[in-house]
Computed example of a mutant assay.
Amino acid sequence: MSIIKVFVVKGEYITLSQFLKEESIISSGGQAKWYLQDNPVILNGESENRRGKKLRAGDELEVNGEVYKFQEQ
């Protein structure tokens, strides 16, 4: 069982590439496309590879062996 990390969404949503950059999983937004091709990302139980996918409060994302729960500010 992994520890669930809480990520606070500032505003209505954050895109998947913005999230990966903010969590220092990638160093630039341009790397998102390549990262998502090579690394599995699970959003709400389903595979996700669209870097522009909007992540909102209530979503749960599994990436890089970590689980993130998105909450409103």
Rank of each mutant, 00 (worst) to 15 (best):
Q73C: 10
S27K: 14
N44R: 01
M1G: 15
L20T: 02
G30F: 08
Q73P: 13
I42P: 04
N44A: 02
E12F: 07
K33Y: 07
Q73H: 14
E46R: 12
I3D: 15
F70T: 06
N49T: 13
Q31H: 13
V63D: 09
Y13P: 00
Q71D: 01
I4W: 06
V67H: 02
L36C: 05
E60M: 08
S28K: 14
S2Q: 09
S27L: 09
Q37E: 14
K69A: 15
I26R: 09
Y35L: 04
F19P: 04
T15G: 08
I14F: 10
S47I: 14
Q71R: 13
F70E: 10
D59L: 00
V8K: 15
P40R: 11
G58N: 06
E23T: 09
S24R: 15
P40S: 09
E72R: 14
R50A: 04
V6Y: 07
V41W: 01
V63G: 07
Q73L: 13
I42Y: 08
A32T: 01
K54G: 00
V9H: 04
N39I: 12
G58C: 05
E12R: 10
K53Q: 13
Y35S: 01
E23G: 01
Y68P: 01
K21G: 02
I3P: 00
Y13H: 13
E22M: 11
V8S: 11
S47E: 12
E62P: 00
K21D: 02
I4K: 15
F70P: 03
